[in-house]
Each structure stands twice: as C-alpha cells, then as structure tokens.
Simulated scan of single mutants.
Amino acid sequence: MLTRRTFIRASAFAAAGLALGAPFALTGCTANPNVLRVGTKIDVPGFGFQNPETGNIEGMEVDIARELARRIKGSPDALQVTGVNVTTRGAMLDNGTLDATLATFTITDARKKSYNFSRPYYTDHIGVLVKKSSGITDLKDLDGKTVGVALSATTRDKLTAAGDEIGIHMKFAEYSTYPEIKIALVTGRVDAFSVDRSILNGYVDDSTMLLNTQFAPQEYGVATKKSNTQLADQIDAAIAAMQDDGTLRSLEERWGLVDDAPAGDGKGGGQDA
C-alpha cells in the first residue's frame, strides 16, 4: 500500500520519466536481437512500479518479462525495460521502439486488429475508488458525479453502460497516468477513480476505499507487433509454459495479486486498462 509520501514521490518519478542507472530502471531501447525490449507501467504497484527509493521498476509484469527473456533469449538479464503508459504502450510497438508490452493491456477484439496478443497471463475486474468522506458507497451514488479514468481505456464506455442499466448519469475526466487520477481524487477534481481493481489496490490509503462493485473479468495479454509473428508465437508458448509450471501463480502470490473472490454480477461489462 502506498503511503502519502511514497505516492507523492512516485508520482514525481512517473511524471518526469527519469532514467536512473540501476537494474531495471528506465532505459533506452536500442535494437539488439539478443535482448528483449519490453514496455511496462511505472505507476501501477504490484504490476509495474518505479520504486522511488531505488529507481528500479518492480512488479509482476517485470518478473514475467524476465521469465520471457530467460525462456526466449536464454537469460533473464537479456532484457531492457522501458516505462510506458496507456497512450505510449501501443505507439512504441508501432514505431519499433519495443518488442513487446506487458502493461496491464487488456485483450479486446478491437486491439487484436492492431496487435498480436498472447494468451492471458492475468484476469482482473473493473473497480471504483472513492474518498471515505464522500458518502459514496455504491454505483448508484455516482449519479451526477465526475469519475476519473485513463485516456484510451474503455472504462468510460463500460461505466456509462452500467449507469444506463440502473438509471444514473456520470461525467468523466480523462488523464494520462494513474497518479494523476489519484491526485485529482485527493484534491476533489473528481469524485471517483475507476480502473481495474488490482490497480486501484495500489492507490488505497487511509482516506480512500474501494466500492464492492466490480464488473466482468478482463484479461491481460502480452502485446507484440502484428508483423512479428515469430516472437508472438514464442511469447505465447512461454506464457503457456508459465501457466503449466506454476510460475504465473507464484508471481501473483509474490506481488499480492491473487484474488480468489467470486466476480460480481457483471453488469456493465469490463474495463480495458
């Protein structure tokens, strides 16, 4: 869980995009056939988060990237990690800066038209984070309220559909990074912060809480460029092997991402982080 001090420092790192000379710090991605160039988030605790104390990027998706490098390139150190967000993770695949992204990238039919996706390595559900003092305890309480969401995510459409089902209307404010949305929530510019629940768990503090509401499962996959089918096949095979040998489950446990609770009623569909 983020303390206020850690959160503020982490937000500064995310905004500045600093490159620090430490293992798995943000790094440039010069093409090297012996190295796997992977984009991960730097603002999602548990998945991809730049530690403000060390500058290192840490999380389950970074560890999966290390496993992919080991299984495909022969060494877990044959890896370059670059920080990405919801607007850059696809663009950096498109321009050849990255070979793959592991960045809470939800698999959708629309996205499959642009990228190859591996089989899912993690399944999540949409959630809503609010301030405890807000009086918001259920989705219906968001009627007339402003919800902070990420640019290029489908959260807005999914929440709108969920609201239509129960007869409420929400307003939305879009941001490039999750720390920006959390700051907007803390400062009162938005009334709620919505993205996948496991992401929101990293932004819970003494003044905020997750609503019990959650929606249909959404599956994260490793994205690669459409033209690189060989790498896509290698990654998919490696993810399958990691499922079979228990590596994925072990990493979920290591990073506190195991969620054996049953899904909610599924109203409104899921969220594409």
Rank of each mutant, 00 (worst) to 15 (best):
L151T: 10
K73V: 04
T146V: 15
L129T: 15
G127M: 08
V84D: 09
K158T: 09
I136H: 08
H125I: 12
N56I: 00
Q80F: 12
T40K: 02
D157N: 13
T88R: 10
T101W: 02
T104V: 12
S152W: 08
K140S: 15
I126Y: 08
K131N: 15
D157V: 06
G144H: 03
A65T: 07
L36M: 05
T108G: 11
T155I: 04
S75H: 09
L139T: 01
F49K: 01
A100P: 09
R37S: 14
V149Q: 02
G46I: 02
T146L: 01
N85Q: 06
V130K: 10
R70P: 05
R89D: 15
N32Y: 01
F117M: 08
R66A: 15
V149H: 07
S152I: 03
K140Y: 04
K113W: 01
G83R: 00
P120V: 00
H125Q: 09
Q50T: 11
P33K: 01
L98S: 13
T82Y: 09
P120G: 08
Q50I: 09
I136S: 14
L93M: 11
T101I: 11
R119C: 15
V35A: 02
T97R: 04
A150T: 11
D138P: 00
K140A: 14
L36C: 07
L159Y: 05
D157G: 11
R111K: 13
L159F: 03
T97I: 07
A91F: 06
E58G: 02
T108K: 00
G163A: 01
M170G: 05
E58F: 08
Q80T: 13
A153V: 07
F105S: 14
P179E: 03
K73R: 05
G59M: 02
M170L: 08
P76V: 09
G163E: 02
A100K: 06
K158Y: 07
G90V: 00
L151H: 09
G74C: 05
V130P: 11
R156H: 09
G90L: 05
A173R: 03
I42W: 07
P33M: 01
A103P: 11
V81F: 04
D63I: 04
T123D: 15
S75E: 12
A100M: 07
N34A: 10
T104Y: 01
A103D: 15
T123M: 05
D164S: 05
Y178R: 02
K132W: 12
K41I: 00
Q80P: 00
E53P: 01
L159K: 02
I168T: 06
